[in-house]
């Protein structure tokens, strides 16, 4: 379910995304899989919390992909999609959850020393 993220595909697979009213343009001509940022029923009732992973120049790309797969149980394609979004756009919204669940995911990501935060969705 795409709750707060819209995907628009333009010429040459130049994608742009709308996340909470902000538009991000993807700086690549590579086709990418459609993102799936899910929200459960509970968080549809309130604004919820976003788990965001931020880019840094040190973590290895394969490592970040592996961590996403482990923490969220994602398949390789989805994990790579979000890894590349972090790498190219500086951040990726990984999920939208209740505070407790978002906090849990941030703790998991921090155990792997990824730069992740939780932010209140607007």
């Amino acid at each position: 379910m795409l709750s707060h993220l819209e995907l628009n595909q333009g010429k040459n697979c130049q994608n742009s995304f709308k996340v909470d009213g902000s538009t991000w343009k993807q700086a690549t001509s590579q086709p990418v899989a459609e993102p799936e940022v899910e929200a459960n029923e509970e968080t549809q009732l309130d604004s919820g919390y976003l788990v965001i992973c931020w880019d840094d120049p040190v973590n290895l790309m394969d490592y970040v992909t592996h961590v996403f797969q482990k923490v969220f149980g994602w398949n390789l394609a989805k994990a790579e999609y979000h890894m590349l979004q972090v790498h190219r756009q500086g951040k990726s919204v990984l999920t939208k959850e209740s505070f407790e669940k978002a906090e849990f995911y941030v703790h998991q990501l921090h155990q792997y020393r990824l730069h992740a935060t939780l932010e209140k969705a607007e």
Partner: peptide, 29 residues
Amino acid sequence: VLDPGYQQISRYMEQDATKEPQELLQECM
């Protein structure tokens, strides 16, 4: 090598709202 308090729980949430979660994060780390 890294300190348990190396990371922040949130970038944009108000400090008052993140004081307790930040302490919990540090404890978990």
